[in-house]
Amino acid sequence: MININTFYIEKKEPVKSCLLALRKIILDIDAITETQKWGMPCFLYKKQPFCYLWIDKKTLEPYILMVKGASLEYPGLEKGNRSKMKIFRVDANQDIPIDIIKALLKKALKLY
């Protein structure tokens, strides 16, 4: 298993900076901790998986994978072919929509 910091460090810019910023936004929420599952950063709330950070293999866009996404309605969330989770894509070449992401995360916390 690779070190969780290695996941971020080995990425190229601007994706690396985007992922690190997303990590900080998520970890700034009270009671969120970080671990690694399936080779990707996993964020836990009360020891339960809350969300993951990953990169789309085709578009190379970073995204936040919401574990309880099926129960979450929010602009910008995509279900795709997933049954339980949804993703929120972030364009690494644009300003990160911090307020939108914080609101999404706060709404998701209410499901726990």
Rank of each mutant, 00 (worst) to 15 (best):
L27Y: 11
N93Y: 10
D95F: 00
P75M: 15
P97Q: 09
L22R: 02
Q36R: 09
I98Y: 06
K68P: 03
Q48D: 04
K86V: 01
K79F: 09
T33F: 08
I98E: 12
P49K: 01
I101T: 02
T59A: 08
D99F: 10
I55Q: 03
N81A: 11
L22V: 04
K86A: 07
L27F: 14
E61C: 13
I101M: 04
E34H: 13
K79Y: 01
S83I: 10
R89V: 02
I26N: 04
K79L: 00
K46D: 13
A21E: 12
Q94Y: 05
L60H: 05
L72R: 07
I64H: 00
L22S: 00
L20D: 00
A21W: 05
E61R: 14
L65F: 04
I29C: 10
D99T: 15
D95Q: 15
A70Q: 12
G39C: 04
K102A: 00
L72H: 08
R23T: 11
D56I: 10
M66D: 08
N93H: 11
W38C: 05
P49R: 05
T33C: 10
Y52A: 06
D28C: 08
I96M: 08
A70W: 02
D91G: 10
R23Y: 02
D28L: 03
I87T: 10
S83R: 15
